[in-house]
C-alpha cells in the first residue's frame, strides 16, 4: 500500500508492507545516519524520531501508523536552534556521549526540554531511561540538560529591550 507523510518538512509518498517497521521505511527514503536500529525493543534509542512533535521509537512503530503524520529525524532536527542549545550544554558540562548514542541523547534532551522547559532532577533521570547506552555519567548529563535549558530559555523567553 502507499502512504503519504511529511519527513523533515518534505512531503513523501512511499510504498510499504503491513509488517514494515517505520525505521526501515525511513532508512530507504534517504541518508539518515541517526537511524541504525540496534535492539528493535525500545532500548538503544538509535531509531528515535519526532512524530507529530512527540518522541517515539520508530523501531516500535508499524510503518502504517505514519500515514498523514509529520516526522522529524535527527538530521532534520540538527539544523534548529534547539539542537545548537543542546550541543552547547553538552560541551559546557563536558558530557560527551559516544558516537553510538550521541544523536539519540540529543533527541532525548530535546524532547524533555520541549515538554518541561525547566526540568527537575527526577524528570531528567526518567528521561535518561529512553537511551540505555551508559557511556556518559548521569551527573554530567544532568548538568548538560540544565545548561541547555538555561540557554534555550534565554533565547526563547528573552524580554524585548526597553
Amino acid at each position: 500500500m502507499t502512504i503519504d507523510f511529511v519527513l523533515n518538512g518534505k512531503p513523501q509518498k512511499t510504498q510499504i508492507r503491513s509488517g514494515d517497521r517505520l525505521v526501515y521505511v525511513l532508512q530507504k527514503l534517504g541518508d539518515f545516519p541517526s537511524l541504525i536500529p540496534d535492539c528493535l525493543g525500545g532500548n538503544c534509542g538509535r531509531c528515535l524520531v519526532f512524530m507529530d512533535g512527540r518522541l517515539i521509537y520508530s523501531c516500535l512503530t508499524p510503518a502504517f501508523k505514519a500515514k498523514g503524520s509529520s516526522i522529524v529525524t535527527y538530521e532534520g532536527f540538527s539544523a534548529t536552534e534547539d539542537c545548537k542549545d543542546i550541543i552547547y550544554g553538552l560541551k559546557q558540562a563536558s558530557a560527551f556521549p559516544c558516537n553510538f548514542c550521541r544523536k539519540a541523547k540529543i533527541m532525548m534532551i530535546a524532547d524533555l526540554l520541549k515538554r518541561i522547559p525547566l526540568p527537575e532532577e527526577t524528570d531528567i533521570m526518567e528521561q535518561m531511561s529512553i537511551v540505555s547506552c551508559p557511556c556518559t555519567d548521569p551527573v554530567s548529563l544532568a548538568k548538560a540538560v540544565l545548561l541547555s535549558a538555561e540557554c534555550r530559555n534565554k533565547r526563547k523567553f528573552k524580554r524585548a529591550d526597553k
Binding site: R17, S18, G19, D20, R21, Y24, L40, G41, G42, L60, T61, P62, F64, K65, K67
Partner: peptide, 23 residues
C-alpha cells in the same frame, strides 16, 4: 501498537490478516 510490536523481535512484524489503525 506498543503491545503488539513490543512482543516481536524479528525485523518484520507479523499481524493478523486485517488491521484497523484508529489513533
Amino acid at each position: 501498537g506498543t503491545e503488539v510490536v513490543g512482543m516481536q523481535a524479528s525485523k518484520s512484524l507479523s499481524f493478523p490478516a486485517q488491521i484497523a489503525s484508529i489513533s
